[in-house]
Design a protein around this nucleic acid. Sequence first.
DNA 1: TTAGATGCAAATCTTTTGCAGTGCG
DNA 2: CGCACTGCAAAAGATTTGCATCTAA
Lengths: 150, 150
Amino acid sequence: MLAQKQVEARMRSFPERCRAAGLKLTHQRTAIFNVLACTERHPSPEEVYEAVLPELPSISLATVYKVLDLFHRHGFLRKVSTEQQAARYDANLGPHHHLLCDRCGRIEDVAVPAADTLAAPDAGDFSVSHFDIIFHGVCGACRSEPAGGR
Amino acid sequence: MLAQKQVEARMRSFPERCRAAGLKLTHQRTAIFNVLACTERHPSPEEVYEAVLPELPSISLATVYKVLDLFHRHGFLRKVSTEQQAARYDANLGPHHHLLCDRCGRIEDVAVPAADTLAAPDAGDFSVSHFDIIFHGVCGACRSEPAGGR
DNA sequence: TTAGATGCAAATCTTTTGCAGTGCG
DNA sequence: CGCACTGCAAAAGATTTGCATCTAA
């Protein structure tokens, strides 16, 4: 599952990574990162908040949101989407996947012939029905735009 | 891109599909489905609402939400996620993808060795940086549960 | 005729923002 | 000490719900 060694390695390098990124090392950030480093559960901001609450009773949910976003922007965390709250609809039921522009949010369809052969992996006790692939990138329009900036 | 023929085919079969699903055919539903059938833009509920407004000035956003959800549950539409509002975080930055239980929302990591060879497809003017695969299914815990229910 | 659908308004939830106070470097 | 960070409260969005009214079948 989640090797203890791996958790330790992630935590050990955390202060240095913050320094490298020019981020101050605070209790809140350490606690939040620790929660994420110790789990494979992919918690929501709310869940992260609840997980750090015992340790930092005065932390605010807004801080959790800010820190998660910060970590994500610095590549410390991955953001995983679940459709649960996403709400983008598509009437094209044929086999295809999506290109998502990380800059402007535009979504386009892509055919991915190679995906046909992509068998559901060893999914343990999960019974897989189908899968979606999201290719992240920057669309032509955004790429040709002057400045980037978030 | 989106062949006129395809749009027509989708719209032509719509009444029958509603009947088959035991859904009443209303102006609102037809207009909403038509918007989705004519676009590849993957609109949000809000965008769908605005698109049907000229035709049905008195439609409410709540109806759009209800109808989209209904269509999705009946398999008329795909729901595409974008992370933009999803907010599930993961500190595992290594190559892996995700299993999502459609029943309870649980997310698990999966290694997908075959995905390594999955090249970014012909993405037009999109420059792809990375991709995520979400395998949908039902987890063991949910599968062994008595009733299903939404 | 009537079960199912809509529209409205209010309630919920999630996420973001502004700002004053705090603490890391 | 100064600037970045936090906490709070309020704002802004997104989505859902209850209910009276309407309408497709």
